[in-house]
């Protein structure tokens, strides 16, 4: 699919134009950083020979033009990235489905991220971008890149130090669910804490989380712990068929996914290593594998609606 899209005659001129812009940006950036590096080198040499004033003058003479070059090209760099997302990723989306659109400056709002209850930890720093929206038949969906982090502070020798830890670096996908429900059901990866909590909940009264839902699918239980405000509703949502589908979805993801069912919607968090939909700066736009990763992730997200059978509307929710 990616190769077909790249060889599209309508895309070729846009790619060629952006490639020219990219080369210009790379060239200017090389000049700018080169001048700065040369200036610093001159300064170090001058200081080594105790000619500090001459070093500062000569160094500044090289560093200042370098900074100016980088500053001037920064606007074009931003334009290049923006055009890539709108024109190339936008066209790639249309090649999958005409209804798909990208809005690079929007994402999943922090409030919605918290509302989804996908993670127990509240973020202290939150960034989101590249909101992609679409609709397949009756099911509207959207997804975006999210980087949510929390911080811890330690008192070290050099004073107080702040450490940032990832809650999620990846994609949050959300779609209209095909059944009505009132409660909240959350599926989280089975880590040590969750396993211990579930054991206490099951075996010792007044300890642990009472909302753990014990399901019958062993493969599912191996990967996930389910919490719900309503035991029957959790099973109404998580039918044997849906559990199998979630197992399949999870096996095709690099890391264990988290899901939540809330307010008649489903939210799915996919932790990922890669920042998607970004314009390459030091790699040619004319390579046939340019959008290989982006197209793979787009196809994956698009298929979720089919994978989870969200268009089957045989219940009261139409």
């Amino acid at each position: 699919m990616a190769q077909d899209f790249i060889s599209n005659p309508q895309i070729q001129p846009v790619l060629a134009e952006l490639e020219t812009l990219r080369k210009k940006i790379v060239s200017k950036q090389t000049q700018g950083w080169g001048a700065i590096a040369f200036g610093i080198l001159l300064l170090i040499i001058a200081v080594a020979y105790s000619a500090v004033i001459i070093g500062v003058v000569v160094g500044a003479a090289a560093i200042i033009p370098g900074v100016v070059i980088l500053y001037k090209i920064s606007d074009e760099g931003a334009l290049y990235k923006s055009r890539f997302k709108h024109e190339i990723i936008g066209a790639a989306l249309s090649s999958i489905d005409q209804n798909l659109t990208i809005n690079p400056n929007n994402g999943i709002a922090e409030e919605e991220f918290k509302f989804s209850q996908l993670f127990t930890q509240e973020p202290d720093r939150y960034h989101t971008e590249d909101l992609i929206t679409g609709k397949i038949d009756k099911t509207a969906f959207y997804f975006a890149e999210v980087h949510a982090e929390y911080k811890t502070e330690t008192q070290g020798k050099n004073g107080r130090q702040t450490h940032w830890h990832d809650i999620l670096k990846g994609i949050v996908f959300t779609a209209d669910f095909n059944k009505n429900f009132n409660g909240i059901t959350v599926i989280r990866p089975k880590d040590f804490g969750a396993t211990l909590g579930a054991w206490f909940s099951k075996n010792v009264y007044s300890f642990g989380n009472k909302n753990v839902v014990e399901l019958e699918n062993d493969g599912f239980n191996k990967n996930f712990v389910v919490y719900s405000t309503d035991q029957i509703e959790a099973r109404y949502i998580l039918t044997p068929a849906l559990m199998e589908k979630i197992n399949d979805l999870n096996s095709r993801s690099a890391y264990t996914v988290s899901l939540s069912f809330i307010d008649s919607r489903t939210y799915i968090a996919f932790p990922l290593d890669h920042n998607y939909f970004e314009a390459p700066v030091f790699k040619s736009l004319l390579k046939p594998d340019l959008l290989k990763n982006d197209m793979a992730i787009l196809g994956f997200m698009y298929d979720i609606v089919h994978e989870l059978d969200l268009n089957t509307r045989i219940w009261t929710k139409q």
Partner: peptide
Amino acid sequence: TTWTESEEQIAAARRNYNATVT
């Protein structure tokens, strides 16, 4: 559609009962 829904809700309630009994 309500009938289909009730079928799934009863199935869910039965599964819940079985899990509780187990």
